[in-house]
Design a protein around this nucleic acid. Structure first.
Lengths: 344, 344
DNA sequence: TTGTACGCGTTATCAA
DNA sequence: TTGATAACGCGTACAA
């Protein structure tokens, strides 16, 4: 590949003039600029990204920290990654994937300290996420996709779980449901302080309690079988439940299968509302699932934009954005009828 | 951050000795090595990735080229990306996402010529993919995930569609099916020479013809609605069909919904076999879908491994690997019964 | 076994 | 408006 040196020679100017013509940091006369441009075209010149990074101390690389394996990245995560990568591209940045899962953060710290990335996008955030302290210590700008327990001093974009749960339950109660159960993520994720599990659980409890309704929660793993088992247990212990709020696609489908096999009609005997999901997933079920769709694309775009703003020192205001899931009413929610297990 | 210079000073040795201690390219006495190690520990030293790249002319960055938007990356793609990123990490490489979709390849070429990536992983490969020529021209090592029409001189890992289709149809014919229809990707993807669409179509036609069975193919977009419409059309035009081979998750679920609404029982009236899918997706349906799962994880691992081998000049043999999808028999395939629309 | 010095391709400072 | 030239931090011939 041609270097700036080659361009300078061919154009008959100094190396620094070529650089300035490119960066625009200092004025260059129209004539020499034209000569330089001609030389660059002739040589098919492209600036070397690595050399630029070394000299400018800015790599234009953003790292995405995602502890992948845990629950097997969901479809929403894919939307998010795609959106983040595209936004980065548009702004002249690159997104690298760091599927690191170290508890002590040794590997993460090493990666950060290599200086490859200008900033980090932190995924799968827990309430007491140790990566926050790590990133502060290393001095890497970062934006959380999710948030810790007390994130006021941090930059974050997250799902507004409180509003999402309220909207979900408003939808169900407006249909007359009063016995509503939450089918949540695994208990392990709750114990780990995984944001969505904790916040949805808390919001659910608050909402139901405020209205004098009983709080029924079942935790289950990300699998159809786990969903079936949890639903079977629910049918036994809480036969009056008429609506299920779920937040776990695989389990949701398992739950519906179990209901159907028990002769329950959806939504006549049981309404099912899947939050933190997507219409695309909802369209897979029959009858079509009423969902509340996670704003993956928006979060990706916002997170990257905020991170770049931090890195470049522009956009002074911190990112503190919460976006609720959007309700897409389809065919699995309907008026409350008879309680579960009730046979007239 | 501390530099090698700092380490050398603290350890009382020359800069190059530190470098050699780190790379191991030339022997360093045990004593000095220990002093250097102590200095590094004390300073929390990490080598600067960018400076290393500039000096060694190797970035340890792999670029993943994915024209994302087209059909909206599938669940399999996510598996693939995760696996590729993890494999790269294990080998000390980084995976950057380049969601570039330019027909003329201008942006792709510019990116490549910046010298950021040591090599490229090419996704969504078409039979006459122009990126192959581009990559050759630029001189960037690459591995295809997929393959062109005549890929013998290239490195690739792809799904073995021929075997997959044969296994799928063997499964169906063994159950007695003779009237089998293929529900494929969109016609646009076929016209664009998208590998999976073309190869599955060709294999299907060959297999069926060889056995004297009629070839029925329907193309439809990646949506449940498209699947329903295609299935409705099929019911009208080919009522004798008793088995559906699909390769498009959303459409598959749409097709099943349409069948159920028409009062068809699955698999009693119609078997459904979804190829290039996954058991995870299959578990979402009720009854559970018989699938043939795409080897996303394996392809990701193989692709990255091959690419690194090319870059590092090791592993002389070219990667020419085809992996068939694995059959997971569940509840949507069963013995052939009466033809569709037949009412005794 | 160790040290010196040059090169990697830019950016940015200092002069002119 | 332009030109030298010193960083940037490390890898590696060449010398000792």
């Amino acid at each position: 590949m041609a270097t700036m040196h080659d361009v300078a020679n061919l154009a008959g100017v100094s190396l620094s003039t070529v650089s300035y013509a490119l960066t625009g940091v200092r004025p260059v006369s129209e004539k020499t600029r034209a000569r330089i441009q001609a030389a660059m075209d002739q040589l098919g010149y492209q600036r070397n990204a690595i050399a630029r990074s070394l000299a400018s101390r800015r790599t234009h690389i953003l790292a995405m920290l995602f502890p992948a394996i845990e629950r097997g990245l969901s479809g929403t995560a894919l939307e998010f990654v795609t959106s983040a990568a595209e936004t980065a591209r548009e702004r002249g940045y690159h997104l690298v994937l760091w599927p690191v899962n170290d508890q002590e953060g040794h590997e993460t710290r090493e990666l950060l300290q290599q200086g490859l990335a200008d900033g980090a996008l932190v995924m799968e955030v827990r309430l007491d996420d140790p990566r926050v302290a790590l990133l502060h210590e290393v001095g890497t700008p970062f934006t959380l996709i999710g948030r810790t327990e007390d994130p006021d001093t941090l930059h974050y974009a997250d799902i507004d779980f409180e509003t999402t749960v309220r909207d979900a339950l408003d939808h169900l109660t407006a249909l007359g449901h009063r016995d509503i159960a939450l089918l949540s993520h695994s208990r392990a994720s709750l114990d780990a302080g995984y944001g969505p599990t904790v916040r949805v659980g808390a919001a659910f409890e608050r909402y139901m309690t405020e209205r004098g309704l009983s709080v029924v929660v079942r935790h289950c793993d990300e699998s159809a079988d786990a969903g079936r088992i949890a639903t079977a247990g629910l049918a036994a212990s809480h036969p009056r439940v008429t609506a299920l709020m779920t937040m776990n696609d695989a389990a949701t489908f398992g739950a519906m299968a179990e209901l159907l096999e028990r002769g329950k009609r959806i939504p006549d005997d049981m309404s099912v509302l899947s939050i933190v999901s997507s219409p695309r997933v909802g369209a897979l079920s029959h009858p079509r699932l009423t969902t509340m769709s996670a704003p993956g694309t928006e979060l990706g775009r916002l997170g990257v934009t905020s991170l770049i703003a931090q890195i470049e020192g522009t956009g002074a205001t911190a990112l503190h954005t919460l976006i609720p899931c959007r309700l897409d009413v389809q065919s699995t929610t309907g008026p409350a009828r008879l309680p579960m297990n009730h046979t007239p």
